[in-house]
Design a protein around this nucleic acid. Structure first.
Lengths: 207, 207
DNA sequence: TAGATTGTTAATCGATTAACAATC
DNA sequence: TAGATTGTTAATCGATTAACAATC
């Protein structure tokens, strides 16, 4: 059982390794990796040790092997299908963006309650009315839902996604979502909240 | 010295209180607040106690007073000026969005290296070429920078913002930014990273 | 070999949870 | 008063840091 913060750091490490590999590097030491991630070398080694470890004393880590170790463990090889619900400014930005990110995630569908918006929107991704969420998620075997609807619609939207069979949700609405089905994970991203947090931290420094 | 996780939760609590007040509620107990935040009542009381506490035994908390207590402590009353650098899909969405969010943050300027983009973009917010970051941030007394440039430009962008006098940065580029000036806070939001993290968590459950 | 760097154990640190006396 | 709920102290839990023997 790997602690969540460690899983998170290992995800960041994975991304760093992708970039390093791309840049033509072959090996890296824990201190070099730590520097690039903004954490201690200890921490890097400790995190990697949760996966069993595979570094070479005196030399460091083989970038390609380490990347594979993390990727295998967390299932980063398989493509993952996602959908976006709520095609406002951020939603429609993500509808395009998520494919690009060079990541293993593909946005394969978009949803909105507003029929006009559905007809207007210019995108290569198929777009459907919100009442079809359940049906389409099932049909397309979508694993992850990205929710960018207003607070008032978030809970219901997530429930429909879960009914459709989604395993995880990224929720941009600033509300806590209640989940009854076990095994479903919700991750919140709250941009206004982060701004507020940042501003609180700045304020705290001044006293 | 309030622990950071507590500050974060108090920010969420603040937002909840705004909504509750808006809904016409006057008091709330720690258990009710906790339920809405997805945390324990213990935790709510503990967090509030960092601010000195002000609940009434047997009755709970006065929503308006509690909101004021948090807001005063973290400086949420004053309007904060922010700018967005990098007017891609997400950047230009934020250029509009951040004002709306009903928050105390105002986006007062946008920047991009691409001159064409600057001329094309439709927005009520003033938009400038990136080389003017330092100058404009100083002139407009912008406190917070929101960075949505590609990884390759992120470090330099943040440095320019800090030179201009920004106190905090929200960075959407998936890189760790090095800061030399003390008192400046960087918060990362990595959407692709969150997707990866989510997918790793889902994967971990299956074993 | 000598220098570098890993993996792991033990020690520290900090936050969350629990419990309860105090209070409205 | 009796019931409800706070604020705080103490106990638990978990993660990070430090240190070092093992290894290439």
């Amino acid at each position: 059982m790997i602690p969540q913060p460690a899983i998170n750091r290992l995800c960041n490490l994975f991304q760093l390794l992708v970039e390093m590999e791309h840049a033509g590097k072959f090996t890296a030491s824990s201190s070099e990796l730590g520097e690039n991630l903004g954490i201690g070398a200890h921490n890097v080694r400790k995190d990697i040790s949760y996966l069993g470890g595979m570094g070479t004393s005196g030399t460091g880590y083989d970038i390609t092997k380490l990347k594979a170790l993390i990727g295998d463990r967390f299932g980063f090889k398989d493509q993952k299908r996602a959908c976006v619900v709520g095609l406002g400014r951020i939603g429609s930005a993500l509808l395009q963006h998520a494919q690009i990110a060079g990541s293993e995630f593909f946005v394969v569908a978009g949803f909105d309650t507003n029929i006009n918006k559905i007809e207007t929107i210019k995108t290569s991704v198929d777009v459907f009315p919100a009442y079809q969420i359940n049906e389409i998620v099932k049909k397309m075997k979508i694993e992850i839902g990205i929710v960018t609807v207003p607070v008032s619609g978030a809970q219901e939207t997530v429930e429909r996604l879960i009914d459709g069979g989604v395993r995880g949700v990224i929720n941009f609405a600033p509300v806590h979502i209640k989940v009854n089905k076990s095994g479903v994970i919700i991750k919140n991203i709250d941009i206004a909240g982060e701004l507020r947090f940042l501003s609180a931290l700045i304020n705290e420094q001044n006293n």
